[in-house]
């Protein structure tokens, strides 16, 4: 079947079997090897990519559902010159050991931080359930918190004209208690 979708910011059209998992579309048909095959059963998370911003296990995502969707893979997350905050944190914390599962963790973490830039350890436990056979979980947790810091730091400063005007006004109000000023 003929499928048109957006991949890492570029429109792509291809002919493929609609049952073909997105994982193999990416790796074998589009030669994007950053997305890894792990278990093939949506259990380990090594194949995680983003579809319309959501983390998706590409081994269980049939190509027929790609039509009109927006897909981001590890290759589209950042660049060596301008890494995504998650990639930057992964480098800073020297997370990988063998490294095979890391793209999936990075993509899952990026999806989490896009919706929750201040995840707690519980949030991380609930959301990041990928499997790392090297057991780099401790370093990954540190890196996720670091990536959250970088994400918050990179976020544009709130515009006082459009954000929380009441709060700003109250803080500036001359009648506000001194402790609040």
């Amino acid at each position: 079947m003929r499928i048109t979708f957006t991949l890492n910011g570029e429109a792509r059209t291809l002919e493929t079997d609609g049952d073909q998992p997105l994982l193999w579309v990416l790796r074998d048909e589009l030669d994007l090897k950053g997305t890894k095959f792990g278990c093939g059963r949506a259990a380990c998370g090594a194949c995680t990519v983003h579809v319309d911003g959501d983390a998706v296990r590409s081994c269980s995502f049939p190509a027929r559902y790609l039509e009109g969707r927006v897909v981001t893979t590890l290759e589209g997350l950042g660049t060596p010159e301008a890494p995504h905050p998650v990639q930057q944190a992964w480098i800073e914390e020297i997370v990988p050991q063998c490294g095979y599962c890391q793209p999936g963790f990075i993509m899952a973490t990026a999806a989490l931080l896009a919706k929750n830039a201040s995840p707690t350890d519980d949030d991380i436990d609930r959301n990041i359930v990928n499997v790392c056979r090297c057991g780099t979980y401790v370093r990954m947790r540190r890196a996720i918190h670091r990536a959250a810091e970088l994400t918050r730091a990179a976020a544009p400063a709130p515009d006082p004209a459009t954000s929380a005007p009441d709060e700003a006004a109250e803080a500036a109000h001359p009648d506000a208690p001194e402790a609040d000023r």
Binding site: D19, P21, G40, R41, A42, T48, D54, A55, V56, R57, C59, S60, F61, P62, Y65, A108, T109, A111, L112, K115, N116, D123, R126, N127, I128, V129
Partner: peptide
Amino acid sequence: YDALRCNACHQASNDGWSGVPG
């Protein structure tokens, strides 16, 4: 959850490759 939606694995039909129901 935020990064673990049901549709992270479950799509609109059963997946014969992975065995994930949908």
